[in-house]
Design a binder for these strands. Structure first.
Lengths: 236, 236
DNA sequence: CGGCAAATTGAGGTAGATCAATGTCGGTGG
DNA sequence: CCACCGACATTGATCTACCTCAATTTGCCG
């Protein structure tokens, strides 16, 4: 297994203690002395859209906390289609399996400009041995991953195409402004929901024509949610 | 929230140290002194097919390690259909979310005669504080849950009905004798794969007629796998 | 034997796939 | 500034895999 060269930009070694999103992620509970015991470097990396953080089957030596941007986890089918298994946003961790498995179980690809911290598994294991404070955070991250996976299946991979698209729009609401929802290319949306791009396009257009959502740009990415109740209509 | 009375049979308080499947599950690494520090009782329970271990939204005070049988995790849609999110077998843990969440995120229902150990979360937290030996096992269980969830999506909820059924038969192979595969009612199989029961029946019959599998009983549950390569054919 | 639950099979309908044409935006170069 | 181009969204017209409705069969059990 020859790992494909990652096309990432190194932005320096992280100063975890002053990290803006530290509270959200693994190191939330750590104290001064814990940081002093970290000996391996934690790198601060940037990825351009479309580039892989890691490949399926690649040796898993580090995990990645997402600082900003959106990452898709995917599996390739033998005939080259991609099945998007779930999405990661700021505060999520990619490649948790590095902690208990020798290889990554899916591929992680930046969908936007993405910045991550790359943490060698050794660091986690050291901290874990030294202090129990990191356990709660690890547990929280695992739990979040399972919940996301289950939600993905039950919400956007179940029922009619119309229902899936409605649920997807709800799932992509901005945390800051829940009136807005930013989507992706119709093809990628299809790979997430198990639909073809034309079907996705038709359903989005239909919601737009029905006045349930209103486009905020001319490229079909960001919409304002006019009638959230209609999106929640869970019938058929 | 009034928890629905569980319809389980109490079989006694577990003697964890002499448990036959201990090595597979959470307490694998524990030592004598650890067991002595367990003060809350760990119950040994039996559930009949169709009975719930816990409901979605119910207060999560315990988790369950499956000793034998098959448990389905499911979510109810507003219109009463059930979406089976994944299956648990001997050695799996149901309700891990009890460790970080106040309530259960899905319902767990016995599909067969099931025997489980019911472990109060307090016990896990105590052990966790006292010794690090249980952490590796918890991590392994979380990892397993995420992997199962991802596999469920990528293997049996993707592609044509024929492909889904083929993958499902492979997933249900006996660990002891991989020549055999035991299925479920066509309706439950449909709920797992996002298909209707008639479609499942047609695809199973087609494989049987094509000589890829051969029925071992007259009720369509257990089949012998004749041509594993044909089941793996991942094209379309 | 009769009755129930579940699997199978058939016939016809439909949601979504497929194939194809057109439209729109943004960038690039003259 | 405008012409051209590539990427992507949209829309239309068929096609088909799966759903729906319905009848029949099979095994199980009192």
């Amino acid at each position: 297994m020859i790992p494909i060269k990652t096309e990432s930009a190194w932005r320096g070694t992280s100063d975890c203690q002053s990290c803006g999103i530290r509270a959200m992620v693994l190191f939330a509970d750590l104290e001064q002395q814990d940081f002093e015991s970290i000996h391996s470097p934690i790198d601060d990396l940037e990825y351009r859209p479309g580039h892989s953080l890691y490949q399926e089957g690649e040796q898993a030596l580090s995990l990645f906390t997402v600082r900003s941007g959106t990452v898709k986890l995917l599996r390739m089918t033998p005939d080259g289609q991609q099945r998007i298994v779930r999405l990661l946003r700021a505060g999520d961790v990619a490649g948790l399996e590095a902690l208990t498995s020798a290889t990554f179980e899916n591929e992680a690809v930046a969908m936007t400009e993405v910045s991550v911290c790359c943490i060698p598994v050794g660091v986690i294991h050291d901290l874990s041995r030294r202090s129990p404070r990191i356990h709660a955070q690890l547990m929280k991250q695992w739990h979040h991953a399972v919940k996301q996976a289950d939600d993905w299946l039950a919400d956007i991979n179940f029922g009619s195409a119309a229902r899936r698209v409605r649920q997807f729009i709800l799932k992509m609401r901005h945390t800051t402004d829940p009136e807005l929802s930013t989507l992706f290319s119709r093809e990628e949306m299809g790979a997430m929901m198990g639909l073809k791009l034309e079907t996705v396009s038709r359903e989005v257009s239909a919601l737009s024509k029905a006045g349930v959502i209103a486009p905020m740009d001319k490229v079909g990415r960001t919409y304002r949610i006019i009638n959230a109740a209609a999106l929640n209509a869970d019938d058929q």
